[in-house]
């Protein structure tokens, strides 16, 4: 379909996921291990890239990749991300990469775009130079097989992608340049997400893998905690304020922590949920907190389940925030 193309190495540096780029990597550097051996500074590069993906992908997105080190780091970044095995991180990476590819291809030569579609994404594209639709309608048209179109466009929500709104003839869907490139970028996203995940990660990058795993686990944990506080509306004002403080990461006093934990446990929250409430505290240690909460719940130590202090005691500690809703309440657990 496309003529044989003299592909410059600069082009390959831009698209490190193509077959040719992979071949070059294979020829020049053999294995990921050797890449690391020859360019030890690449570890920092890989780390930096993944962290920028993790934090929204913006930085990674903007970055211009012209140098060889960036090119070499691509398979390492992918290997680490597969190894971390977090769907969210993988998706973030795939989306960022796909957006980046879209921007690059919009400024790319047509023959390069079509060659890449066909060879890297198995998406054969026919083109048509005729503009027999009147000058205002369509300048240039491309055609892709409908089954590929369906597979790659299925995540697109806009009704303009519905087949009924397309020109479909003899199994080919008509696209303009922008749409074609959008489809190719999506194919790239799918390729990353559905790629072979059983990649060896060189030893030198294993620390990065575990660092990422821990970070992601912790972030998930924190998210869970934020989620949970919102859902309970029947909290007395004193407790509400304490939870608010906990959420914001205030350094709570021992008594304050005790009040929260005993209150929640007596209201039927489980250990896990109660521990999560403290996860934003500056000195938070999951292990320690769990131990204390278990103790208060009667699971450990004295085997007695502790109750929160009475309103009077709370007043003495300056924790009470009595308002109208507290009418006749003598003990926070009475609050409805």
């Amino acid at each position: 379909m496309t003529s044989k193309l003299e592909v410059t190495s600069e082009l390959l540096l831009k698209y490190p996921f193509t077959k040719e780029a992979k071949a070059i990597l294979r020829n020049e550097n053999k294995t990921l291990k050797e890449v690391l051996l020859n360019y030890p500074e690449i570890i920092g590069k890989v780390r930096e890239k993944i962290f920028s993906v993790l934090h929204g992908g913006r930085a990674y997105f903007r970055e211009e990749e012209k140098n060889y080190l960036d090119f070499l780091s691509y398979p390492l970044v992918l290997a680490v991300i597969y190894k971390v095995n977090d769907e969210n991180l993988l998706l973030k990476f795939a989306v960022a990469e796909s957006k980046r590819l879209f921007l690059k291809l919009m400024n790319e030569r047509e023959e390069i775009v079509l060659k890449m579609a066909n060879e890297t994404f198995n998406l054969p594209v026919l083109r048509d130079q005729e503009t027999n639709w009147g000058e205002k309608f369509i300048a240039k048209k491309y055609y892709v097989p409908m089954e590929k179109y369906l597979a790659y466009s299925k995540k697109f929500r806009d009704t303009s992608w519905k087949l009924i709104n397309r020109n479909l003839m003899k199994g080919f869907v008509e696209l303009n340049k922008r749409e074609l490139i959008r489809l190719i970028s999506e194919a790239y996203k799918v390729k990353i997400i559905e790629g072979e995940r059983n990649v060896e990660v060189p030893k030198e990058l294993e620390t990065l893998v575990s660092e990422l795993k821990e970070k992601i686990a912790r972030e998930k944990f924190l998210k869970g905690a934020k989620h949970f506080i919102k859902r309970d509306k029947s909290l007395p004002p004193c407790i509400q304020e304490l939870l608010e403080k906990a959420k914001k990461g205030f350094d709570l006093s021992h008594v304050e922590r005790l009040v929260i934990a005993t209150f929640l446990l007596n209201r039927g929250y489980d250990i896990e949920e109660t521990v999560k409430v403290f996860s934003e505290l500056p000195d938070f240690s999951e292990e320690k907190t769990r131990y204390q909460v278990e103790h208060l719940s009667g699971l450990k130590g004295s085997k007695t389940k502790y109750s929160p202090p009475s309103c009077e005691t709370l007043k003495a500690y300056g924790i009470c925030r009595k308002d109208e809703s507290c009418k006749n309440v003598k003990h926070p657990l009475q609050y409805k």
Binding site: L150, K154, T159, K162, L163, I164, N165
Partner: peptide
């Protein structure tokens, strides 16, 4: 999506 097409859904 194929079915929607045959059924004329989504114009």
């Amino acid at each position: 999506e194929i079915l929607d097409y045959l059924k004329g859904v989504g114009w």
